[in-house]
Design a protein around this nucleic acid. Sequence first.
DNA 1: GGATTGACGTCTG
DNA 2: GCAGACGCCAATC
Length: 107
Amino acid sequence: MEKRNYVQDVYEVTRLIPFGRFSTYGSIANYLELGSARMVGWALNKSFTDGNVPAHRVVNRKGELSGRNHFPSPTMMQQLLENEGVEVKNDTIVDFKKHFWDPSLEL
DNA sequence: GGATTGACGTCTG
DNA sequence: GCAGACGCCAATC
């Protein structure tokens, strides 16, 4: 049976993040009206086992790679972001507002 | 079934 | 402006 819950929505939105951009938990949570940014993080945690979700494109409000610790390698998240052209320094995204992408922009 | 934790965010001091 | 505390909803122990 299909889950078809808010978790799927988080996956969809995360996959919609364009190349070289990134989004934040708060924006996604606000867009999906989850009421809690924690739901996004928790959902993304499962995303590893559920399907291919560019979770490395989702960071916290400060632009820090807070979830890097949950990746197979803590440096993989930064590597992926840099590979996409996103400048990352000290586990934090440079030009936060510049590369920032919001799901509401998709509308 | 109750208590704790979790990839966060916002408010108050 | 920075630091600390609370709130959020769901899953796991």
